Computed example of a mutant assay.
Amino acid sequence: MSRLIWKKSSFSGGGNGNCVETAVEWTKSSYSTSGDNECVEVAGSPRGLVRLRESDQPETVLSVAPGIWSAFTRAVKAGEYDHACRL
Rank of each mutant, 00 (worst) to 15 (best):
K8F: 02
V61T: 12
G44L: 09
A71N: 10
T33V: 07
T22V: 05
S63K: 03
L4Y: 06
N16A: 08
V76H: 09
P46M: 02
S9P: 02
C85Y: 07
F72P: 09
P46I: 01
M1G: 14
S10P: 03
S32K: 05
A23Y: 03
P46S: 09
S2N: 14
I5F: 14
W69D: 00
A23D: 11
L52E: 12
V20T: 14
S10M: 00
S70Y: 01
H83E: 14
T60R: 10
G44N: 15
A78Q: 14
E41T: 10
M1D: 11
S10K: 06
G13T: 11
A84S: 13
E25Q: 10
S29H: 05
K28H: 01
R53I: 04
S30A: 12
R53E: 11
W26N: 12
S9N: 10
P66Y: 06
C19N: 15
E38Q: 11
G48L: 04
V64E: 01
A65F: 06
N18F: 07
M1A: 14
P66C: 06
G17A: 10
G79S: 07
S30M: 04
R47N: 09
G15Y: 00
T33A: 09
Y31I: 03
E54C: 05
R86N: 11
A84E: 15
D56T: 05
V42T: 02
E59Q: 08
V24D: 11
S34Y: 05
E38R: 09
A84F: 15
L52H: 05
E41Q: 15
S10C: 00
V76W: 11
D36C: 04
